[in-house]
């Protein structure tokens, strides 16, 4: 199981590093501060309704969440010396990632 989780962590690390900086810069800073004018609803809606965009964003969400789960689990173990809470931490991290993935799947694939 551990190698598989490590693979998800690693793939999520790469995808997050490649895609999140640009997306977060635009939607978190550039649009709110008015540096760049945000796209209108019709355009963004068209981009998001394309199947390729949806699958790509779902992949990003799922892998990024498992990246978080794996890394945060070890941050709690080592950073805060919580090795004795192993079961609860594992459940919280991977359970959170699974739940988040299901929510992402619902928002990206089920909602028209």
């Amino acid at each position: 199981m551990e190698p598989f989780l490590w693979l998800l962590f690693s793939a999520g690390g790469v995808l997050s590093a490649l895609l999140i900086p640009a997306l977060l810069f635009l939607f978190g800073l550039a649009f709110p501060l008015g540096w760049v004018s945000p796209p209108d609803h019709a355009h963004l809606s068209a981009v998001l309704s394309h199947p390729v965009t949806r699958v790509a964003l779902l992949g990003l969400c799922v892998l990024a969440l498992f990246h978080w789960a794996h890394r945060f689990r070890y941050a709690l173990y080592d950073g805060l010396q919580l090795k004795h809470l192993e079961r609860a931490i594992t459940l919280f991290c991977y359970g959170g990632a699974l739940t988040g993935s299901a929510v992402a799947g619902y928002f990206l694939l089920a909602v028209p």
Binding site: L23, A64, W68, F72, A75, G100
Partner: peptide, 11 residues
């Protein structure tokens, strides 16, 4: 390691 928390926030 803490950067992962903000990766999750971005999702």
């Amino acid at each position: 390691e803490l950067s992962s928390v903000f990766v999750a926030w971005f999702v």
